[in-house]
Computed example of a mutant assay.
Amino acid sequence: MADDEAGPRLFSRRRRANYDGGRQHVHKVRVSPEEEGQLARLALRQQVTIPRLLVESALSLDARETPTERKQIIAELFRVHRYLAAVSNNVNQMAKATNATGELQEDLLQTLAAVRRTAERIDDLIDRLSL
């Protein structure tokens, strides 16, 4: 996921969408330097502003993740799905070659291990989603 963070965000934007009529209420929050660092790291990880992080976090107390985190997990599931499709194509090609020659392809075990890792990655992402 880290290597994809530099690319475009598929499902979100950094700031919250504009609200018709604007937002009239303002809340000031004072934080210590340590708290500011923690908020900055969390906001950077989610690729949102600190105000958006605070609003989403507070308004989603019943959920296990903020809407931004949920969108990021869904985007990651799409990336994993594309990767799995590419790996399955390799498995099909190896199976065809194995059936034709009767010899086990040398990359087959590594490819099947990649399939297992991908399945575990999918399980982890699904576990992160609150149902």
Rank of each mutant, 00 (worst) to 15 (best):
L108W: 12
A85M: 00
L129E: 02
T101S: 15
P8G: 08
D123K: 10
D107H: 06
T118R: 03
R82P: 00
L77T: 00
G37K: 12
E120Y: 05
E34H: 13
A63F: 11
P67C: 07
L10N: 05
I50A: 03
A95I: 09
E36P: 02
H81N: 07
A6Y: 05
E120P: 00
V91H: 06
G22I: 09
R41S: 10
E65P: 00
R13K: 12
L54I: 14
I122D: 02
E106Q: 02
S88Y: 02
D107I: 01
G102N: 11
S60M: 13
L112N: 08
Q47P: 15
D3K: 07
A17S: 14
H25L: 15
L54E: 14
L109E: 14
R82K: 00
D4K: 09
K71Q: 14
E65W: 01
G7P: 10
S57Y: 08
A119I: 06
Q72F: 01
L109M: 14
G102P: 04
S88K: 06
E36T: 10
E103P: 02
R41T: 04
A113N: 13
R70I: 14
D123T: 06
L125Q: 03
R23G: 06
E103K: 13
L39A: 08
F78E: 10
G37M: 10
E120R: 13
Q105H: 15
P33K: 06
R70V: 12
K71R: 08
S130T: 12
L112A: 08
Q47E: 14
A95T: 03
L10Q: 07
V26I: 12
L77P: 00
G22H: 10
N90V: 03
A119C: 11
S32I: 04
E65Q: 03
V115N: 01
N89K: 03
V91E: 08
L44W: 04
R121M: 07
